[in-house]
Simulated scan of single mutants.
Amino acid sequence: MRFSADTARPVAWKNGGGVTRELALHEDGGKMVWRLSLADIAQSGPFSPFPGLSRIHTVVAGAGHRLTGDGVSLAAQPMQPLAFDGGLALDCQLRDGPCRAFNVIYDPRATRAQASVLRGGNWVGESGPQALFVAAGSLVLDGIGGFACGEGLVLDSAARGRVSADGAVILVRFFPVRD
Rank of each mutant, 00 (worst) to 15 (best):
G52M: 13
G45V: 00
G143R: 04
I170E: 02
V60G: 15
S4E: 15
A131M: 02
D28P: 11
M1A: 14
D107H: 00
S44H: 10
L118H: 13
Q80M: 03
L94K: 04
M1W: 13
D40L: 11
A8P: 04
G161M: 05
G16K: 09
N103C: 03
G64M: 04
L38A: 10
S157C: 15
E151T: 08
G17M: 11
L88Q: 05
T111Q: 01
G120W: 02
N103V: 07
L132Y: 07
A158G: 12
V33R: 10
R95H: 12
G152Y: 04
T68V: 01
C99V: 03
P81R: 13
F50I: 03
R109S: 15
G167K: 05
I41Y: 09
C149Q: 10
H57L: 15
G52N: 11
L141K: 00
P51L: 14
E22F: 08
L88H: 04
R162C: 13
G87L: 15
T111V: 15
L36R: 12
G69T: 01
D6W: 01
F102V: 04
P81F: 08
V59F: 00
A158W: 02
A75T: 09
S48A: 08
Q77F: 14
I41K: 11
A42W: 02
L155T: 09
A115C: 10
A8T: 09
G18R: 05
N122Q: 08
Q93G: 14
Q77N: 05
A8E: 09
G87M: 15
R109P: 10
L82P: 01
G16I: 04
L171V: 01
G137P: 03
Q43F: 09
R95P: 10
R35Q: 11
W34A: 09
M79N: 04
G69L: 00
D179F: 10
R100S: 12
T7W: 04
I170K: 06
S164G: 12
R35V: 12
N15A: 11
A110R: 09
Q114V: 13
D85I: 13
S4P: 03
R160G: 12
L94T: 04
F102A: 10
A159M: 02
R119A: 09
W123Q: 10
A165H: 08
L25P: 00
D91M: 00
R178I: 13
F147P: 06
A131F: 01
L139G: 08
G137V: 08
P49G: 13
A63N: 07
P129V: 03
R178A: 14
V169K: 06
D6S: 10
V140A: 12
D28M: 12
G146N: 01
D179G: 12
V19S: 13
I170S: 07
F175R: 11
G86D: 11
A158R: 05
A39H: 01
A113W: 00
G128A: 13
P81A: 08
T111A: 05
T7D: 15
F102H: 08
C99Y: 02
A159L: 03
F133T: 03
Q77S: 12
G137E: 00
